[in-house]
Nucleic acid binder design. Structure first.
Lengths: 220, 220
DNA sequence: GACTATTTTCATCGAATGATGAAAGCTGGT
DNA sequence: ACCAGCTTTCATCATTCGATGAAAATAGTC
């Protein structure tokens, strides 16, 4: 699909600097088990994350991941049976539903929105490959494949319900889904689409701007 | 990917009730040009819209579209050269950038947010296949394929710039992108993910709830 | 040092896809 | 009635994908 497709092998492995060659030849790639200490599984996960984020869920293939990881395609199969399994392993969210929601709800209710926005962006801005992760997540969510249903359930069950419980107005579910819409939209433009200046905006600026929105949705 | 995949041919064509058969045989499907009056091109477009919306951009294949349309795969090629061409034809936005933006900006500035939200949802809620259209659009936008760049340019050039021009605060671009984030997020949950109760909420309720958000982003 | 388990490469299979050539049959104009 | 041209079907190619079996080569253990 994309233009640059072949040759982008990040060469986690392929660069094998075997000293015994003078001309530019393909590294003979000895077969069989490699010397110890190479984290193949980790390389596959990293490659998978970047591929899922970059090409989207559907367009990401096992072979493509293997190519990027500099690894035989069979290995992807060896470590992760299905693409879905690989996906959940790659996206492995730390403890988003548990600790995060707790930390958000804990505190003075009049700063709820502010806390929510700060924690949300703080989480994703932290590690560099979290950006990839969320871009991948958004891609699955909108892909229409089975993963979308998965994501929808996660969103309603693990997030929206707890958020709605913290809202004391009429229609708490609607309020909660509005909060989710603002946060998902912001995440989408910031991480997935990379729309400026939102993509580079300082976290605290976003807290100051979006916080009141969330606050109003939840507390009128 | 999805479970129900085969056999979903809406049979725009395939139902051929040729009378001259006793046993259950495939309709022989005479070759050559069919009787007049059948809008094959239109059938392909309809099928493409539903496929793009349902399976996402990447996962939608020419052959799949042809299957749903009850049409030979070659025809898709015959009428639309590339998948990209078919996509823009299927998504054929009426005049979103021109007239809509004009109608939004025209009026008292203190109701800007309200007008924007009302026009936005009014447009997409109107025709039934507009929902499919926007779901398809969101899918491309997040797919990471070439269409994503297309969409990003559309968003920044045709929408954000004009919106920013109507904002008189500091950082108008940031404000405009925040508005876009709220609207895209809402569209995503409402049309693409179908999260309740947002998906079924009355348009005017959304205007009352989201309007002030937009208004505050644009006017402080 | 020998043996086993694990990791890795290679070689295929069947299915699906986009592309293209060529023939068959209908439509519409004359 | 006839013919040019458009619409449609069929047939086929080269790719790519996921899946799987089997062999090779190292690691870890004793």
């Amino acid at each position: 699909m994309s233009v640059a497709d072949v040759g982008d092998a990040g060469a986690v492995r392929g660069a094998g600097v075997s000293g015994d060659d003078g001309v530019a030849n393909e590294p003979p790639k000895r077969r069989g088990r490699r010397p110890a200490g190479e984290d193949t599984r980790g390389a596959i996960l990293t490659a998978a994350r970047s591929q899922f984020a970059e090409k989207g869920y559907d367009a990401t293939t096992l072979r493509g991941i293997a190519r990027v990881a500099g690894v035989d395609a069979r290995l992807v199969h060896h470590y992760f049976t299905s693409r879905e399994e690989l996906f959940v392993a790659a996206m492995n969210l730390p403890d988003v539903p548990q600790r995060l929601v707790g930390r958000i709800l804990d505190g003075p209710p009049e700063q709820l929105g502010e806390r929510l926005v700060r924690q949300f962006f703080g989480l994703w801005d932290a590690a560099p490959d979290r950006r990839q992760t969320i871009a991948g997540l958004i891609s699955v969510a909108t892909s229409g494949s089975d993963g979308a249903t998965m994501f929808r359930h996660f969103l309603t069950d693990a997030v929206l319900r707890r958020l709605a419980a913290a809202c004391e107005l009429d229609d708490p579910e609607l309020r909660a889904s509005l909060v989710a819409s603002q946060m998902m939209g912001a995440a989408m433009l910031r991480y997935s689409l990379g729309i400026e200046p939102l993509a580079s905006a300082d976290t605290e600026d976003l807290v100051a701007l979006i916080g009141p929105t969330v606050q109003r949705y939840l507390t009128g």
